[in-house]
Write a protein that binds this DNA or RNA. Sequence first.
RNA 1: GCCGCGAUGGUGGAAUCGGUAGACACGAAGGACUUAAAAUCCUUUGGCCCGAAACGGCUGUGUGGGUUCAAGUCCCACUCGCGGUACCA
Length: 937
Amino acid sequence: MEYNFSEIEQQWQQAWEKANAYAVSNESQKPHYYVLDMFPYPSGAGLHVGHPLGYIASDIYSRYKRQCGFNVLHPMGFDAYGLPAEQYAIQTGQHPEVTTNENIKRYISQLRKIGFCYDWSREVKTCDPKFYHWTQWAFIQMFNHYYDTVAQKAKPISELVARFEQEDPHWASLSEHDKQVRLMNYRIAYLADTKVNWCPELGTVLANDEVSEGLSVRGGFPVEQRVMRQWCLRVSAYAPRLLEGLDRIDWTESLKETQRNWIGRSEGAEMQFDIKGQNSPITIFTTRADTVFGVTFMVLAPESEYVERLTTDEQRAAVDEYLAWVKHRTERERIADRKVTGVFSGSYAINPLTNAEIPIYISDYVLAGYGTGAIMAVPAHDSRDYAFAKHFNLPVVPLIEGADVSEQSFDAKEGIMMNSGFLNGLEVKDAIAKMKEYITNTGIGRVTINYRLRDAIFSRQRYWGEPFPIYYKDGMPYTLPEDCLPLQLPEVKEYKPTVTGEPPLGHAQLWAWDEANRKIVDKKLIDNRSVFPLELCTMPGFAGSSAYYLRYMDPHNGEALVGRQANDYWQQVDLYLGGSEHATGHLIYSRFWNKFLFDLGIVCKDEPFRKLINQGMIQGRSNFVYRYIGEGATGNLYISYNLINNPEYKDKVQPIHVNVNIVHNDVLDIDAFRAWMPEYKNAQFVFADGSSSEVEDNPYMGAAMPKMYMCGWAVEKMSKSMFNVVNPDDVIAKYGADTLRLYEMFLGPLEMSKPWDTNGIDGVHRFLKKAWNMYEQISDAEPTPDELRSLHKLIKKVTWDIENFSFNTSIPAFMIAQNELYALKCNKRAILEPFAVLLAPYAPHIAEAMYHRCGCEGFVIDAAWPECNEAYLAEDTQKYPVQFNGKVRFTLECAKDTPKDEVEKLVLNHEDTARYLAGKTPKKVIVVPGRIVNIVM
RNA sequence: GCCGCGAUGGUGGAAUCGGUAGACACGAAGGACUUAAAAUCCUUUGGCCCGAAACGGCUGUGUGGGUUCAAGUCCCACUCGCGGUACCA
């Protein structure tokens, strides 16, 4: 019977659904295992073949674990808040929720067709009030906690208040407002005036990871720096734990390294420099304490609080002008144009070691947000200081013997110190240590650790996001009572900012908090005595995605984010799969969020994702036709790719993207091409054989025989404009979901980026067809040793592959086993049944049908994973004891039909090996004709 | 600049602990079946050389060195490509 994949796939998808086969219980005696995919943002374009790559891999692993007897949690949901739906709403007035729900529906239908084993009853979407209830709840907890840097743990703000009451005599006399202002400096979720990335085009601020090279990651719009009052999360407080935790999780080294760089720990020292004519010093941060003797000037960031104090009257005008210039520069200009700029403040600092007076400058190459926003400049050993010194003609004092600083600075931390008083003659490393000791002992500074990681800006001036459960009283924020959550996103007439520049929630009528009656009321009623304004910003995209993995454990819990029991059972995500582009965003925020919940005792593990694998991106593989533009061109003639370098066409053709869906194995479907777009309706071709007539006279009957037009190709990003988007639905219609699943794995290693190239898909499909044919008639006969060896080789290989996430190498193993069994004409149940069981994680539908053709009851997806019996694997070999040099004896092992003297001769004649073996006694030497394979000592 | 990853036939890639490099698949060439095509099946397929033939010889994993009885794999130096990140003191 023919392999009718669409019938098989439909039949089994319905059977699984009917039996609720993928529902997972939180109560089980089985060991637990949690496999998670990064949930997608449901974009309007639907899934393309690149999206399911990771999902297929995690699905294989989940199914394997399930067959190994684990209770496997494998859920899916949607990161439903996002800019595209909102931009669409602004343009069309359609509520983003409508768009989002439509897109989700499409995603689900596409995902279902691929046959994933998701427990859809646990689906979450971040825009669902039942879900964002807990996003808001977590925010309230962050508002009500502070970070105790001694205990390295979040603690209730009430404990801090109690401490203030006890220890600070002024506390009691402060007004309520002033108390709140003071506490704001400690809260983990806090309001602050900070320099933010403001994107005028999007009308919102963005987090650092949402900006790349001065442009917004979504949309690519320019971003400028602005000071605004924003909600922030004190992620930086967790920097040491976020760094240290990396050592305890099983992530790829490159991803951990990316996070380490992003967190950016650097050990150094804070040092105080006295100011000439003033009595309070300034504090700088340096990692090169050894170079204090070479400090010839100081530099402040333009935004540094020291600027005001250190600007002299004579320099005031120049400094103000510079500050104004810096302020108007966008981030993008700053990056593009890196010329040296700066201005003298007029003040001098005193070098604490040389007592030299050194000028203090202001320049934007020093960043306000890092260290103390002020530096000591050592032009001889820092390239940025060097450029600045050359520009302003400041002295350069070399401190390392033999370093030539006439052309450039010597930045390396190596060499012998000179010109450095008591440090002379020391290695740089020792000099740093000695200087740290010196400044600590003399009190001019202290050893500190600095982190690059900044607090996350948590406000977005947008509509489509979680509302903050916050209202304002006397200018200070207060949280809504927890039992009033969720605070639902209100309806608005427009999704744009208001005319007064308020965020879109400013349009909402029902958007005020009646404190006494604990309810939302019309904003007309705001009197700031009992009815107060609510926060108008919404939360950023990462709010909803930071703890969603916990919600899957207990998705219908109305009392808590996740129940104690559910969390104790599942513990944490055992395997997390997703793209590495989330390394410095989602994966930092999630770890932070989880550590916070851990501090509160809500979750039992302080790291959310035990093992993490990054799947590579699938790029597009574009196809081209080549329009002839040489002499006498009509614009209608297309040259086959193999001919374009011929002299008559070279440099006379123009490549044009052609829809990859009308190209198969780089051969153009010319009828489909003519029908594709009106401009190609009358296209003429020069075919691969150089002829242009479309039919060839048939030597037999004169029937039409199509000619081949070859297309060129290139690897590009998968996108509509390149006509290289391949929809999984089309692949499934043509080949079936099982072929799609197998082929996506066959394409190459999971972690690697690779182009989607359908040129090999026929081979995989052919394998399934052939395999299916073996199940035509099943016999109960005893299997032969050859058949058993094939099977057990396969069991060993596939088991190893899945456990090591090397899914691509399993497909050839299946093909080899299938070829071997095919050659043996094997149709025995004892072999074919386990074969189907092994295939089930990769190609569940056909495996299910095969399993039932073997006469089995139940689902193959529940069948126990077969065990490999090594006894069947032993090759037929012969062992010979060998005498060597008259004394050394060892065993020589070789294939059974190899003549003994041949093999012996081989070993003994191999000069280098013979020398090596002399005087040694290897256990055995494995030999095949012509070569020594292995020497076991 | 810094950090990370990679480079193997015409193509995608395999070689899992240092032990027969090129598995498997695609493509290509030839053949069988067919009026013809599709489908299916069989053979060949890294390069070079010898030969009537061989389970024949040489060469071969980006480049140049090294370690080893043995290197795609380990070490050193370099070239190119990809990804991340950047006035982070």
